[in-house]
Design a protein around this nucleic acid. Structure first.
Lengths: 134, 134
DNA sequence: GTGGTTGCAAAGGCTTTGCAGGCAC
DNA sequence: GTGCCTGCAAAGCCTTTGCAACCAC
C-alpha cells in the first residue's frame, strides 16, 4: 500500500516526457518538451505534457522555473539554485548561488513568517548577445 | 524639447492611476488599481490601466513585481528589494534584503554576461496564515 | 473489468492590441 | 486642428480542464 496516492500507472507518454526533461541540458518549456517527445510519439498532446510535468514537479523529480512574461521552463536539477535569463534571446542558465543563504537572510528579516522557498532570477544579456550589441 | 519621447499628455486617467499606485501601502494588481480608480472615474477601462501602468514602469516611477501564476503587482518603491508572498492568502510584503549584494555575487559567478537586474521572491506562510494552520 | 491516462478542443486568466471617437495641447 | 489617449471589445498567450475513448493493471 502506497502512502495515499492512487496507484499511478506507467505509460509510454509519461516515461517519454520524463526522459525528455531528464536528458536535456537546457531548460525546455512545456512546448519544447512536447516537440521533442513528438519525435517518439507523434500525436502526443500539449495538455498531456502539462499534466505529466505537473506530476513530476509534485513528485519532486523536476523543478519548474517560472519566467515572468514567458512560459515556464522545466529543470532536471532539483537542488535549489538561482537562474539567469537573457532578455535578448531568452536563454536560461543556472547560477550556482547559495539560495539557502538568501533564505536564511530573509528568515532573519521576517521571523514571524514561515519562509519555505525562493525564486531568484537574474536578468541581463548573455555573453553571446552582449557581444552582438557592442 | 524632450529627449525624444513624443509629447506625452496629462489626462485625468493618468494622474488618477499614478496617484492610486503611489498612495497605496500594499502592492495592488492592475485589476485592484482599476477598481480603486473607478471610485473617481467610474468608466475607466482595464486596458487603459495596463497601458498607463506600462508607461509608469517604463518611466521608472513604478516597479512591476511579476508573480508566478498570479497577476503582476505594482509597487511604488523603485528601490530594488526582494519580496515575500504568502502562498495561502497571496499577501505580498517587502523584504529589505540587499538585492545588490545578490547581483554582485551573480556577476562574480557569471563574468561573461551582463547582469542588470534581479527578481527575488520568497514564498511561504505569512504570520496570519501560519497561525491559522497550527 | 476498473479507473487512471490520453488526445482533442474548449475554456480560463492575465495582458495586449485594433479601432473609432474624444480630448489635451 | 493634430495626434496622443481612451473605452470597448476582440484577440493573444500560456495553461488548465471536461469528456469520451483508451489502455495499464
Amino acid at each position: 500500500m502506497q502512502t495515499e496516492a492512487a496507484a499511478k500507472r506507467n505509460t509510454r507518454q509519461k516515461s517519454a516526457i520524463e526522459s525528455a526533461v531528464l536528458s536535456s541540458c537546457d531548460h525546455p518549456s512545456a512546448l519544447t518538451v512536447c516537440e521533442r517527445v513528438k519525435e517518439e510519439i507523434p500525436n502526443i498532446s500539449l495538455g498531456t505534457v502539462y499534466r505529466v510535468l505537473g506530476m513530476l514537479v509534485k513528485e519532486g523529480k523536476v523543478r519548474e522555473i517560472p519566467v515572468p512574461g514567458a512560459p515556464s521552463r522545466f529543470d532536471k536539477t532539483t537542488r535549489t539554485h538561482a537562474h539567469f535569463i537573457c532578455t535578448e534571446c531568452g536563454e536560461l542558465s543556472d547560477i550556482d548561488a547559495e539560495e539557502s543563504a538568501f533564505i536564511a537572510h530573509a528568515r532573519a528579516m521576517f521571523p514571524e513568517a514561515e519562509i519555505d522557498e525562493a525564486e531568484i532570477i537574474f536578468k541581463g544579456l548573455c555573453a553571446h548577445c552582449k557581444g552582438e550589441k557592442s
